[in-house]
Amino acid sequence: IGAALLLVEIGDDMKAFGSADRLASWAGLCPGNNESAGKRKSGRTRKGNPYVRRVLCECAHAASRTQCALRTKFQNLVVRRGHKRSIIALAHKMLRIIYFMLSRGTYYRDAATDYEALGVQRNAARWIKKLIKFGFLPDPA
Rank of each mutant, 00 (worst) to 15 (best):
Gly2Leu: 05
Ala3Leu: 08
Ala4Ser: 03
Ala4Glu: 12
Leu5Gly: 15
Leu5Val: 10
Leu6Pro: 00
Leu7Asn: 11
Gly11Glu: 15
Phe17Tyr: 01
Phe17Cys: 07
Phe17Asn: 05
Phe17Pro: 05
Gly18Arg: 09
Gly18Asn: 07
Ser19Lys: 04
Ala20Thr: 08
Ala20Tyr: 11
Asp21Ser: 02
Asp21Asn: 04
Arg22His: 10
Arg22Val: 10
Leu23Ile: 01
Ala27Glu: 08
Leu29Gly: 10
Leu29Glu: 05
Pro31Ala: 08
Gly32Tyr: 13
Gly32Phe: 07
Glu35Ile: 05
Ser36Ala: 13
Ala37Phe: 07
Gly38Ala: 06
Gly38Val: 11
Arg40Thr: 04
Ser42Gly: 10
Ser42Arg: 06
Ser42Pro: 02
Ser42Thr: 05
Ser42Val: 04
Ser42Glu: 08
Gly43Phe: 11
Gly43Asp: 12
Gly43Glu: 14
Arg44Gln: 01
Arg44Trp: 03
Arg46Ala: 10
Gly48Gln: 02
Gly48Phe: 05
Asn49Arg: 03
Asn49Ser: 11
Pro50Gly: 03
Tyr51Glu: 03
Tyr51Trp: 06
Val52Ile: 15
Arg53Thr: 01
Arg53Ser: 02
Arg54Lys: 12
Val55Cys: 12
Leu56Gly: 01
Cys57Trp: 01
Glu58Ala: 08
Cys59Ser: 11
His61Leu: 04
His61Val: 01
Ala62Tyr: 10
Ala63Thr: 00
Ala63His: 02
Ser64Tyr: 04
Thr66Met: 09
Gln67Thr: 15
Cys68Arg: 07
Leu70Asp: 07
Leu70Trp: 06
Arg71Tyr: 07
Arg71Pro: 00
Arg71Ser: 06
Gln75Ala: 03
Asn76Asp: 13
Leu77Ile: 02
Leu77Asp: 13
Val78Phe: 07
Val79Arg: 10
Arg80Phe: 10
Arg80Val: 04
Arg80Ser: 00
His83Val: 11
Lys84Gln: 09
Lys84Tyr: 14
Lys84His: 13
Arg85Met: 13
Ser86Gln: 00
Leu90Val: 06
Leu90Ala: 00
Ala91Ser: 13
His92Leu: 00
Met94Glu: 06
Met94Gly: 04
Leu95Thr: 05
Leu95Arg: 04
Leu95Phe: 03
Arg96Cys: 15
Arg96Ala: 08
Ile97Leu: 12
Ile97Val: 09
Tyr99Gln: 05
Tyr99Lys: 01
Phe100Gly: 06
Met101Glu: 11
Met101Cys: 12
Ser103Tyr: 07
Arg104Gly: 13
Gly105Val: 02
Gly105Ser: 01
Thr106Phe: 09
Tyr107Met: 14
Tyr107Phe: 14
Tyr108Met: 04
Tyr108Thr: 01
Arg109Glu: 14
Asp110Pro: 08
Asp110Lys: 00
Ala111Ser: 14
Ala111Gln: 11
Tyr115Val: 04
Tyr115Ala: 02
Glu116Lys: 11
Ala117Tyr: 14
Leu118Tyr: 15
Leu118Gln: 12
Gly119Gln: 03
Gly119Ser: 14
Gly119Leu: 02
Val120Pro: 02
Gln121Asp: 15
Gln121Gly: 15
Gln121His: 14
Asn123Met: 09
Asn123Cys: 05
Asn123Ile: 10
Ala124Tyr: 10
Ala124Trp: 07
Ala125Gln: 14
Arg126Pro: 10
Arg126Phe: 15
Lys129Asp: 11
Leu131His: 15
Lys133His: 06
Phe134Pro: 07
Phe134Tyr: 14
Phe134Glu: 03
Gly135Ile: 03
Phe136Pro: 12
Leu137Glu: 10
Pro138Ala: 02
Asp139Arg: 08
Asp139Met: 00
Ala141Ser: 13
Ala141Gln: 12
